[in-house]
């Protein structure tokens, strides 16, 4: 079980992903934009962050670059459905800024859960070493 920060502005997607992550026995904390996520990160230390890219107030791209600066060990998964650029363009950018993995929406949730497990497992191994 891990503590996951989920940053997603779309209510339907956020609620659905919360359920998916709960079912996989993770603790989920939700934020609907980058600013809320920043506030949360000042109080708490999650194991992993799943963030959307195109969001109001503070975008996922800004959030990732700030988070990587302040919390370099936090694993980040970027998700996006596209927009002004194509989703792969945003996701490539997010990976270059420090996201460990990125997914293009609609995501195969099994693959997402697998990526979360792999990242958390890798982190645990790092800590144990």
């Amino acid at each position: 079980m891990a503590k996951i920060l989920l940053v997603e502005d779309d209510d339907l997607v956020r609620d659905m992903l919360t359920q998916v992550l709960h079912r996989a026995s993770h603790d989920v904390f939700c934020a609907s934009n980058g600013e809320e996520a920043t506030e949360y990160l000042q109080r708490e230390k999650p194991d992993l962050m799943v963030t959307d890219i195109i969001m109001p107030k503070k975008s996922g791209i800004t959030l990732i670059s700030e988070v990587k600066h302040r919390h370099p060990n936090l694993e980040i998964i970027a998700i996006s459905g596209g927009g002004r650029l194509d989703p792969t363009g945003y996701l490539d950018l997010s990976e270059s800024l420090g996201a460990s993995v990125s997914f293009e929406k609609p995501i195969d949730n099994t693959a997402l859960l697998m990526a979360i497990d792999l990242l958390l497992h890798g982190k645990k191994e790092k800590v144990e070493n």
Partner: peptide, 16 residues
Amino acid sequence: GGIAHDFNNILYAIIG
């Protein structure tokens, strides 16, 4: 492009 972004979110919620 904007519509595609919103629609991907909608589809993702439905699929999930």
